[in-house]
Each structure stands twice: as C-alpha cells, then as structure tokens.
Design a binder for these strands. Structure first.
Lengths: 175, 175
DNA sequence: CGCCGCAGCTACGGAATCCGCAAGTCTCGA
DNA sequence: TCGAGACTTGCGGATTCCGTAGCTGCGGCG
C-alpha cells in the first residue's frame, strides 16, 4: 500500500530496440518498470492506468501505451479466471504423454484441441504434460482415448483425474 | 461479434437466496447470464460494463453489480497472466507426490508455500500434483528436496521440469 | 560534426466509463 | 394479502479512457 516508485527512468539503458520481438521470438526482455506494471495488474486486472502510473512513477498515457504493447506482444493477457468446477466443467485431468519421434509436432496438435487448457514439454518420465478440461466423463474419455492416443507419435499416456483443486494463483513476481 | 442476448430475465428461477455462499461453500450455481458475463471477461478482462451489458442483454449497472458479486464470491478473478519465463522465473516444474496418511493436510502445507502456483489432489499413480515456479535451479532444488520432501506424510516425489510452455489459455466456456 | 528518424514520455481536451444512490419490479414465504 | 429480499433500471457527477500533438534522448549516417 505504500506506493514507492519502482524505478527511475532509464532503468535499463541497454538494448531498447528489441520491441519488434513478437510472440514467437525469444524473450522480449522486460525492464523493471514493465515488471512493476505487470505486478499491479496481477493484483487487479482492472486497476486504472492513473493508479498504476502513480505506483510505478509514470504518467497515465505512458502506462497505457506500455500495457497495450505488452498485450500486443503476448507477454501478458488480462482475463477473468475461474474455478472450472463452478462454471460447469466437472471433469479435469492432467495427462502425461510419451512420444516417439518429433515431440513438438505432437505438442502442436494438442495445442489445437480446445479441451487442452495447458500444454507443456517436460523433462522426466513424460515428454509432455497436458491439462484437460471436460464437461463429463464421456467427454474426458473421448478426448484421451480417441483423440490424444490417436495422434501419430504418441507412444503411451497416463492420466491423473482431478479430485480437488486446492490452489490456483496468478501472482508471479508479487511475492 | 453478433451480440445476441443470452437469456431473458428469470433464466434460473430456482434458488436465488444462496448468494451468501462464500468462497468456501459448495458451488454457488451460476445462471446463464453470469456465465455469459464471465465469457465476455475471459475474452478481455477490461471490457467496459456497458459493452458487456449489450452483449448479454443487461443494463450497465446490473452487469457491474453481478461482476462485483462474482469477484466477492471468489467465483472469478480478473488478473494479468504471463508466461513466467518472460517475467524472469526460469525454472518451473510439475511435481507428482505420493502421500501416506492424510492427503489434505499435505495439500494445505503445499498451498501455504508461495512457490507452489497450483495444487491439486488427483486419482492415479500420484496423490497430489503441484506446479512450482522458481527463479533458478538452486531455488527449485531447495523447494523440492528441502521443503516438499520434508513434509510429514510425503512418501515420494517425481519431478517434471518444464522445457517449453506451449499453450496456456483461460477460455473455459468460450468454445 | 550536424542532421535525420525512431522510440518513449508528457500534456491535454473531449468522449466514454465508472460508481453510488434512489426508486421500481418480481418472487417467495409468512 | 402483505412484507422482505434480491435484482433491475435510470440518472448525475467524478473519474477514467483514448487519440493526438509536442518534446526529448539516442543511435545511425552522410
């Protein structure tokens, strides 16, 4: 609540010309001010630009332009998140997948499926882990057995059906 | 973009007095209009109330009050979400945990740890799955080996370090 | 060395939005 | 039948959003 400006201008004097880095490029490299803005919006996605500006030491318009750029670049998105159970999706599962051949192409196929909420390539005894959100058991069964296991390159899968979601936060950097 | 009102008033005539259900209670039961509002905010968390009202067939003030209630109830939250790698958290992992004794008490202990972003009780070869967000390898190592494995009741753990985050959406209900 | 172009910030005014409040409507239960 | 509670509407004032113009610092280039 004590609102101390996080950084004076010219916080990170080096490379500032990488702004054309788009969402597929390598890390756009955020400076301290943008990080502070993100933290503000992680606390409240609807916080007014003027309030954010006061907190990070920038004018309202500057905050607005930076936020717009962060959104365009795909660095962050401002959205409503819910507990899926409350919204009518009764079955969720984490699925671990082993792949033979190109892992990334399988990952892309999974990404294209609307039921796959979360797709990540991992090291360990699974090559991929996928979070699946479904309406009921039949739906879940169809996605795992008919769609995922049918993908070329998928060697095996292991499912972990969700019993209870205990925690779900979005506060990175706001520790 | 065709904005058809989703439901006439009295969409869900039954129990409307469960509004004191707070964030720990059982499902607050959303009606079709609240669902439609959530969908709007999943597309853009900053969309003006008037625009939402036009889309779902409600006045601006009505939308505002329902959104406030949904936030107060904990049904949804409006936040900025990011790719942690971009924001400076270089190591993430999913950890599967086997527990002997009371699973829930272990889950509560994990929930209290700020590095645990996501805690869920599962059926399958793990009792719990936890997503961990860390700054570097040392940090990750400490959390897994010193903190998690030290919890009473934890029998074993298996880690899946993230190599690449392929998909991360928040579009439940907006299919 | 001076000029040019770019990117980011500030300033500012008009339009749109947010927010609280008072009053009307509907349903359900006593 | 009546009253309580929840939901909705309408409205006015303060606030916020948004586009634009001008300024500044910096790097590239002739």
């Amino acid at each position: 609540m004590h609102s101390e400006p996080v950084a004076s201008r010219s916080a990170d004097p080096k490379d500032s010309r990488d702004s054309r880095e788009s969402r597929n490029g390598t890390t756009p490299h955020l400076d301290a001010v943008s990080l502070a803005i993100i933290e503000q919006l992680q606390e409240d996605g609807r916080r007014p630009y003027a309030a954010i500006g006061k907190a990070v030491g920038l004018s309202e318009a500057a905050v607005r332009q930076r936020v717009q750029k962060l959104l365009d670049q795909g660095v962050m998105q401002i959205v409503a998140v819910t507990d899926p159970l409350t919204v009518g999706f009764r079955r969720q599962a984490m699925v671990g997948i082993n792949v033979e051949g190109d892992v990334e192409s399988v990952a892309d196929a999974l990404t294209a499926m609307s039921e796959c909420e979360y797709v990540v390539m991992t090291a360990g005894s699974f090559d991929l882990m996928v979070e699946i959100v479904c309406e009921d058991d039949d739906h879940l069964l169809e996605v795992i057995n008919r769609r995922i296991r049918a993908l070329p390159g998928v060697r095996s899968t292991e499912s972990f059906v969700y019993l209870k979601l205990k925690k779900q936060t979005y506060m990175w950097g706001t520790r």
